[in-house]
Computed example of a mutant assay.
Amino acid sequence: MKLHYLGVALFGAALSLTGTSLPSAAQELYRWVDEDGKVHFGDRPPAEVQAKSIKAQLKPVNGAAPTRREDFPDLDREKKIEQEYQAKKRAQHSRSEQQRRTACAQARKQLKILQGRVYFVDEAGNESTISERQRVEEARKLEAQIRQLCG
């Protein structure tokens, strides 16, 4: 009797490993007991004995419940990550561009100041001037900075 169960189990396992499914006519499975008391299983009941269908009692061999859409990983996740990365990159570029424009405007303002009479006031309120050579040197530095920042 145990051999019959084992045979049915092995048959089912072999079908599941090969990916083969039973034809639609063989979707029924019957159980019957012969005159010697042995239990048999088959896809067609014998004519001489009364067989009972056990299809409702069995689970499908490859019968995993169909998965729902939310059970799958987010297929657009990689696309969303790339979009977020590009948005952050654009925002960072925008901030650095704004900083560059601010530095450019500041350098131009300082150069304009250096082109006139230049003097400095210290913390005590005393005025001090710079030499013409220092003024020209500072102006060159600012012009180079303007070329670099302002394009």
Rank of each mutant, 00 (worst) to 15 (best):
L75C: 11
R44V: 15
L29F: 14
V118Q: 04
N126G: 01
A14T: 04
D74I: 13
R140T: 06
G116L: 00
R101Q: 06
Y30C: 00
L111Y: 05
A25M: 01
A105V: 03
Y85S: 06
L10G: 11
R117H: 08
K89A: 08
R90Q: 04
S16W: 13
D76V: 06
Q50L: 09
E137G: 07
S24P: 14
E28A: 11
D74L: 12
G125D: 10
R31Y: 06
D43G: 10
G19Y: 07
K55Q: 10
A13S: 04
E127C: 08
K79G: 01
R31I: 07
A64V: 11
Y85D: 03
A124N: 09
S24A: 12
Q98H: 08
R95H: 09
D34E: 07
S94Y: 10
S16E: 13
R147S: 04
R44N: 15
P45I: 04
Q57K: 15
P23W: 01
V121E: 09
I130A: 00
V121I: 14
R44L: 15
E143R: 04
G19F: 08
D36M: 09
Y119H: 03
S96N: 15
H93G: 10
Q145V: 03
L15R: 07
G42N: 05
E78W: 14
G19T: 04
R95Y: 12
K89F: 12
A47L: 14
P73D: 15
L17C: 09
P45F: 05
F11S: 05
S94M: 08
V49W: 14
R44F: 15
V39I: 15
E82K: 15
A64M: 13
L111G: 04
W32H: 03
R77W: 10
K38M: 09
A87N: 04
R133M: 02
Q86F: 14
K141Q: 05
D122W: 06
E82N: 10
F11H: 05
A56N: 09
K141V: 02
E48D: 09
V61M: 11
R90A: 05
L15V: 01
Q134R: 08
R140S: 07
E48T: 05
N126E: 02
I130V: 02
E28S: 12
R117S: 08
Q57I: 13
A139K: 00
S16K: 13
V49S: 13
E78F: 14
Q148R: 11
C150T: 00
R31F: 03
E35A: 14
S16N: 12
V8S: 12
E143L: 01
K112Y: 05
A105R: 05
I113V: 13
K38T: 12
V8D: 11
K112C: 04
